[in-house]
Every structure is written in structure tokens, then in C-alpha cells.
Amino acid sequence: MRVRAFEDNDWPGVWPIIHDVVTAQETFPYDPGMSSPAARAMWIESPPGLTVVAVDGDRVLGTAKMGPNRPGPGAHVSTASFMVAADSRGTGVGTALCRFALAWARTNGYAAMQFNAVVESNHAAVHLYRRLGFTVLATVPRAFTHPTLGRIGLHLMHQEF
């Protein structure tokens, strides 16, 4: 597996991952009815941001996007989002994507990385982020409606470099 910059011909492999994650409504606060064009416009970053894919040969196993968390005076803090194909979860793809994003942020002079909305029941992601040095700064109670758990919290997670 390798992580590399997204290329236009990767979209047919990225879209099913995004579609599956978003329609599950368990980990991302995105519209489950999002179309492929809308998803592409939202997921594919323009500079100074970057979108990447984790691939095994021609198969897309996961994807990430990264960039400044906020414009202007907040642009020194980065953010990132990650999605992994269901059959590739638990195999190190998410770890590789997160490590790539952290290295990218450091190389590009960011002072920190912040995740604005990590669903508290997404235990695999929370564990991964903590293992890689993030802390939960706060949890917004009942800010995410999970399809089976009801309203649960969203973590604000942060790592200073």
C-alpha cells in the first residue's frame, strides 16, 4: 500500500468509499443524499490543501483530504478527514493516511492539526487519533444524530506540533 496525491482517474474508486461512509450516517455529518458531483466538489481540495488516496496497485483503499482548518488568522492550524473502504478497515490504511496528513502539515509549516467533528462512538478513529498524539479538547453533547445510538457527542480533537 502507498499513499499518493489524488488523480482525476481515482474518482471512480474514491466515490464508492465516500458514498458508503456518508450513507451509513455513523461517522460523518454529511448529507446522505449527496451526489457524486457534490461529493467530489467537497472532497477534492485545492491548494494549499491536498487530497490523497491510499492504493494497492490500482485499487483505492482509502482517501484523505487536508488543508487549513480556517482561513486568514486561523490558517496556521491544519485539519484533515479520512475515509477507508469497509473491507480495508483495521488493516492500517487509516493509520497510514493520518500519518501522511500529519507529516504533510508539519512539512507545510502548520502549527497544529485540529479535527472539528469526530463522532464519539467512532471508537476506532478516536483510538487512532489518540495513539498518534491527539487529545480531546471538548465534546459537543448531542451534536450528531447516529442512526442507532440517537444523539451523541462530537469531539473536538487537537495536536500541537
Score class of each variant (00 low, 15 high):
residue 8 D to N: 03
residue 9 N to D: 06
residue 10 D to W: 02
residue 10 D to A: 08
residue 10 D to Q: 13
residue 11 W to V: 13
residue 11 W to K: 13
residue 14 V to F: 02
residue 16 P to G: 08
residue 18 I to S: 05
residue 19 H to T: 05
residue 21 V to K: 12
residue 23 T to R: 13
residue 29 P to D: 14
residue 29 P to L: 08
residue 29 P to C: 01
residue 30 Y to K: 00
residue 35 S to L: 00
residue 37 P to S: 12
residue 38 A to L: 11
residue 40 R to P: 03
residue 42 M to K: 14
residue 44 I to V: 15
residue 44 I to P: 13
residue 47 P to G: 10
residue 48 P to K: 07
residue 48 P to I: 09
residue 49 G to P: 01
residue 49 G to Y: 07
residue 49 G to V: 12
residue 51 T to H: 08
residue 52 V to Q: 10
residue 53 V to L: 06
residue 55 V to P: 03
residue 55 V to H: 02
residue 56 D to C: 05
residue 57 G to Q: 02
residue 58 D to H: 05
residue 60 V to M: 04
residue 60 V to T: 03
residue 62 G to P: 04
residue 63 T to W: 01
residue 63 T to G: 04
residue 63 T to D: 03
residue 63 T to A: 07
residue 68 P to H: 09
residue 68 P to A: 12
residue 68 P to T: 12
residue 71 P to E: 02
residue 71 P to L: 07
residue 71 P to N: 02
residue 77 V to K: 03
residue 77 V to L: 11
residue 81 S to R: 09
residue 83 M to R: 10
residue 84 V to Q: 00
residue 84 V to S: 03
residue 85 A to V: 10
residue 85 A to M: 04
residue 89 R to E: 14
residue 90 G to V: 03
residue 91 T to C: 14
residue 94 G to D: 09
residue 94 G to R: 10
residue 96 A to D: 05
residue 97 L to S: 13
residue 97 L to N: 14
residue 99 R to K: 15
residue 102 L to C: 09
residue 106 R to W: 06
residue 108 N to S: 07
residue 109 G to M: 07
residue 111 A to R: 15
residue 113 M to G: 01
residue 113 M to F: 00
residue 114 Q to T: 13
residue 118 V to Y: 02
residue 121 S to Q: 11
residue 123 H to P: 00
residue 126 V to H: 05
residue 126 V to C: 12
residue 127 H to D: 12
residue 128 L to I: 06
residue 128 L to Q: 08
residue 130 R to I: 03
residue 130 R to C: 06
residue 131 R to T: 09
residue 131 R to A: 09
residue 133 G to D: 04
residue 134 F to N: 02
residue 134 F to K: 09
residue 135 T to E: 04
residue 137 L to K: 11
residue 138 A to Y: 01
residue 138 A to M: 01
residue 140 V to C: 11
residue 141 P to G: 14
residue 141 P to F: 02
residue 142 R to M: 11
residue 143 A to Y: 02
residue 144 F to E: 09
residue 145 T to V: 15
residue 146 H to I: 13
residue 146 H to M: 08
residue 149 L to S: 01
residue 149 L to H: 08
residue 152 I to V: 08
